[in-house]
Amino acid sequence: MQKESRPLYLVALIFSKEVMKGEKILYLSGSWFNWANDLYKSFYNALIPNQRYMSYINGLKITLLISFFAVIIGILIGILVAVLKVASVNYKMRWLSNICNIYVNVIRGTPLMVQLLIIYNLIFTSRNTNEIVVGAVCFGINSGAYVAEIIRAGIESVDKGQMEAGRSLGLSYVQTMRKIILPQAIKNILPALGNEFITLIKETSVASVIAVTELTKAAQYIGSRTWKILPPLIIAALCYLVLVMGLSKLLSLFERRLAKGDRN
């Protein structure tokens, strides 16, 4: 009974003004209290006044928008390049796989930020470009190269006999690819693909260099207003963390559903 009530008793001590004046241990508690209060205030300032939370929400929206379209563009490019690469070996079209290789090597061999700046300054030079579209296209093109390699590895991980069985039944190359090879490949590539998308979401923070006010940039703006950069950055970090954890959860659910054909 006594032991249980002890923490409550301590809290009561800390918060009661009369005791705060006196002893040393309570003085320490008081400084802890001040520190917590400061912390609370700085987060409050980073979040509430002037509806600053709307800045995060808007930034988050743009981050999600860029990520979403970049993922879609990335998957489309990735599947196309991967299938072309695999098929070009089959149909003996060296030039096609060479083009694909150049694309993959250039994208993988240069930093994302440099690609972003080049595409922004070189290709989209007109005054009224929509930075969000530029960002989505650029991240999509970038992601496509990585996704292509992931999917190619996935396709090649499917037993060769599957393609032969499909073709021997009279299905065309494309039909076999779509109905037999890709569904099996997806199961193998999903973990790596999920990784790629998680990376992609976080990398969109680089979009701030082309003046897109996504989550990170929004946090920086607020930091410059409140003269305290750390709290908004931590808030932004938490947003990314929640986003990524949500995505991981979603992916693992998806993986489990796809595993239904596995052993028993």
Binding site: D159, G161, Q162, E164, A165, G166, R167, S168, L169, G170, L171, S172, I180, P183, Q184, K187, G261, D262
Partner: peptide, 21 residues
């Protein structure tokens, strides 16, 4: 060749059933 293969059934050593179906 796809039309021709429809008339030629093939059975493999490794069965090659489609595991996801």
């Amino acid at each position: 060749i796809n039309k021709i293969r429809q008339k030629m059934g093939m059975v493999f050593q490794q069965f090659n059933l489609f595991p996801h179906l």
